[in-house]
Design a protein around this nucleic acid. Structure first.
Length: 227
DNA sequence: ACCCAGGGTCATA
DNA sequence: TATGACCATGGG
């Protein structure tokens, strides 16, 4: 039932309100492009506080470099990743990514790739899906790509600006068509959506009768959308 | 003792 | 193509 035609004014209005409420976030929380890429993989369905512990482990082990991650035994890597959860899968995914990253010539080569090619390359890695790829494109390679995540769907779904059922690429196209193609804008907007989601735009409480993962669709009595 | 978190892949129908 | 199972830890 949600309106789906891109509406620039509404999207910019929401952006200004988020910025006013939360202040500039200056993302991504990570020092180097490669650390950002690692964080993007590790944060899949995982609280960032857990990811931080895993990245700290990697740093202390001198393993925040693709060559080191690649030649490390999978078991050893999984141990370092333990606090971030899904550590066996993530160890494999990180090594898949690092192998691809080095095979393509690492940063100096990849930074020259056109965005569509870079996106396809990232998606070709087993363990890198659309959101992880776009995190990397936007925050590491500074390409104007609008990241869609669970917080984005929840917030704009509740604002009735976005149909929650739309596909990832469709939802991304919705934002990219309505907003100026601006890296700084996309960067800050997504960061604000996440911060707002953690603080204010909470998940809907479960109704007790059903066990749907994202909350009972009929349990509408809540005051968690924020203003 | 729940519930949730900045997803993605794979097997099945 | 569409749903479900699975992955797993730390914090509220």
């Amino acid at each position: 039932m949600a309106a789906n035609a891109p509406d620039s004014r509404q999207l910019y209005s929401v952006y200004r309100r988020l910025l006013h409420q939360h202040g500039a976030q200056n993302w991504w929380p990570g020092d180097t492009p490669f650390e950002i890429m690692v964080g993007a993989v590790l944060t899949q369905n995982t609280a960032w506080s857990n990811v931080e512990m895993a990245i700290l482990n990697l740093r202390q082990a001198g393993a925040l470099e693709p060559e080191v991650i690649n030649r490390m035994p999978g078991r050893r890597l999984a141990t370092l990743l333990k606090p971030s959860g899904y550590f066996n899968i993530k160890a494999r995914r990180l090594q898949n990514f690092c192998r691809w990253y080095l095979d393509q010539g690492a940063w100096d080569a990849l930074r020259e790739w056109p965005t569509p090619d870079l996106r396809q390359g990232l998606l070709s890695v087993n363990g890198v899906g659309p959101e992880t790829a776009d995190d990397i494109l936007l925050y590491a390679f500074e390409r104007p790509v609008f990241v869609i995540d669970a917080y984005t769907r929840r917030l704009f779904g509740r604002l009735a600006l976005l149909d929650v059922e739309r596909s990832y690429d469709d939802a991304r196209g919705f934002f990219e068509a309505a907003l100026d193609s601006d890296v700084a804008l996309f960067n800050e907007y997504h960061a604000l959506i996440v911060v707002h989601g953690k603080d204010i735009c909470r998940p809907r409480p479960r109704c007790g009768d059903c066990r749907l993962q994202s909350g009972c669709p009929t349990a509408t009595a809540h005051q968690t959308d924020g203003r």
